[in-house]
Design a protein around this nucleic acid. Sequence first.
DNA 1: GGCCAGCCACAACGAACAGTTGGGCACGCA
DNA 2: TGCGTGCCCAACTGTTCGTTGTGGCTGGCC
Lengths: 317, 317
Amino acid sequence: MRSFVRAAELGQLQHAADELGVTQQAVSKRIATLERKLDVRLFTRTARGVELTLDGQAFLPHARNIITGVDRAITAIRPGSRALRIDVLGLRSAQAVVLHDYWRSHPETDLDVVTLRVNDPREAVAAVQAGEIDASFRTITDPAALPRDVQMIHAFDSPLELLVGPRHPLASARTLTPSRLRKHRIWVPGIAPRSEWAEFYDQLVTDFDLRIDAAGPNFGNEVLQDTLADSADVATLVGARDRYIWPTNYDLRRIPIVNPTLAYPLSLIFPRTNPHPGLRAIINHFGSLTPLPEPAWLPSWATKPRRSDGDIESARR
Amino acid sequence: MRSFVRAAELGQLQHAADELGVTQQAVSKRIATLERKLDVRLFTRTARGVELTLDGQAFLPHARNIITGVDRAITAIRPGSRALRIDVLGLRSAQAVVLHDYWRSHPETDLDVVTLRVNDPREAVAAVQAGEIDASFRTITDPAALPRDVQMIHAFDSPLELLVGPRHPLASARTLTPSRLRKHRIWVPGIAPRSEWAEFYDQLVTDFDLRIDAAGPNFGNEVLQDTLADSADVATLVGARDRYIWPTNYDLRRIPIVNPTLAYPLSLIFPRTNPHPGLRAIINHFGSLTPLPEPAWLPSWATKPRRSDGDIESARR
DNA sequence: GGCCAGCCACAACGAACAGTTGGGCACGCA
DNA sequence: TGCGTGCCCAACTGTTCGTTGTGGCTGGCC
């Protein structure tokens, strides 16, 4: 493919061969093979070189596209100077949606969004330390437990919405206050015990006297959707920005929670020394997100004066 | 690459091998080779199959991208059912710009824009007849000379603008009427004698008493730009929609010509029977272009009642 | 018109590669 | 402990790739 592109650009197989470090015969054979496999003539041969046929002209941009795709693929994983790799909890989470928004406005960024598939934030910290990932959306609720060479900053806050089926008594509400959620059963499956999310829901239950059922295995979002669609008394909480559950299916309703807005604070951890150069722009992007509606409720670790507040500024500078 | 993608999707080399019609060992070797060449581990092997590593996750979308690129490249030239292939006079001409606009609003179209690199419109007609191209932006000024199995319709009109350097006496005009061009030297190099463009400029000279110098070889747009930028008395005509000359270079000015607007009519020729199915949408797109400002001047072959006017409607239906 | 230079295609050969079969190891399960 | 599954490794073979050597074609030049 590269031989074809260079030959088309230079107009001579000989020159392309010199550039690619092979003999002219090799390039000739490569292109002959390509033509045979495609069952199409790509060049007209003249005494002064080669010239693209119409088929060749049509093929050329596709060939260039493939080559740049291959190059991007290689740079994405080349050890050392690879694309910016960020770990998110799920590919349809609010974190991933925000990253996708960033990428759409900066499509030149070589950005790779991956999921570590581990629950323990300490494993994510280890992956950051080892250089396997450049950053991870995780929260260490005890900042003292963070190693010195890993930095954590507050990224943005993700407001929660109630997701209910059409038969639920709150289904027709346009907004809800936390106190109106009292007595209703809220089902949030798949929360690992002692994880950051478990601590978040614990505080929510304590502060607003809610009834959150965080136990039970997570059978996947399809099961959750089915349950919600059929049930008249089960609701769940989802992030306003995430794309886990598309509300048009099953006639599910997303209802914002206000006065106060309940929000989950998302943090980003990354190496303190020599972070990936592309990371700064992402962090700056967080500042441009729509701010949380006031008043807002956040868990204690996000409202307490944060040791790393100064670092946010230095990271954004 | 396909083995990698299918193995990642199915989670087992065995299944990928079955699907690809090779042995499991072959898939294993392919992936091992890929890993060796990339110097990276793509899968973690377990007793139940394989699972993507972080590098594998990062690589997967790029691999998918490459595969779709290859598939598109093949469909672009597959004899029989290939992508819609349209011949334009130049890749930065108004014709190509309009096609590019269309493609941007319909990116799913497999569209290939090529240039036949011939001056004689009859060669373009022959290429359409032979099926090498699906359509060509050419004008046959004598419709009777068109073969019965080739159809020509009016595509759209391309208004002309005067392009001058900063020292030219008309440089600061915001618009110009054709009469103000009288006495100024207009240089339009590279017009083949007896071509459709020569006939167009002949009529322009006759109708408005202009001084158009269409002789001389075309040394390329860079030379033309240099000449215009330095000269105090040479101007040229360019299409308002084309992208041949980017006016920010050399402080060149594009000045619209109005009262009447001078426009070049562009026609499209294509096979009368069984035209490429994608062509109809392109032809419809012409109707959505901004219409020519009134009053407008067009050469005689575009203002005379056109035999093929009825065909436009049938083609657009 | 004959000759040369430049360029591409064909042929033969050795090295490398890809795919197959056969065998072995690790793991999970009854 | 035996079995099934899924992967890797080893040996073998047909194909492919790139090299060298050679010939044909074309355009320019004496």
